[in-house]
Amino acid sequence: MATDQREEEAIQALTQRLTAAYSTTRSPAEVEAAVAAAHASFEDRPVRDFVPVLVERKVRAILGS
């Protein structure tokens, strides 16, 4: 299932927010990779409304919030 425009925009905004939040401890490439991996883990889920929130939680756990 392809992601819709709103989800893609939310993921981009999330990436920017997390890149700023982790700028002192993680490189932008590390944050982007974590977001991409977390987002891919929800690829097969039929309900997409909460995917950006779930991705953020997963990335913060990965990067050590």
Rank of each mutant, 00 (worst) to 15 (best):
T19R: 05
S65F: 09
E56M: 06
T24C: 04
A37Q: 13
D44K: 12
A36F: 05
V35G: 02
R45V: 14
E56S: 09
F50A: 13
A38W: 03
H39S: 06
V53I: 14
V35P: 00
R57W: 01
K58Q: 15
D49Q: 14
E43G: 04
A36W: 05
R48L: 07
H39C: 02
T19G: 06
H39G: 01
T19S: 14
R60M: 12
R48I: 05
A40V: 04
V59D: 10
T25A: 00
D44N: 14
P52H: 06
S41M: 08
L54S: 00
E32Q: 15
R60W: 07
A21D: 14
S65T: 10
L63C: 11
T24A: 10
A36S: 12
I62E: 14
A36Q: 13
K58R: 14
I62C: 08
V31S: 08
R45C: 09
P46W: 08
D49C: 04
V31H: 06
T24V: 02
A20R: 14
E56Q: 14
A34C: 03
A33D: 11
R57C: 08
A38D: 07
S41V: 07
P52C: 14
F50R: 12
V31F: 09
Y22E: 03
E56C: 09
V53P: 05
Y22C: 08
A20K: 15
F42T: 09
F50P: 04
A40M: 06
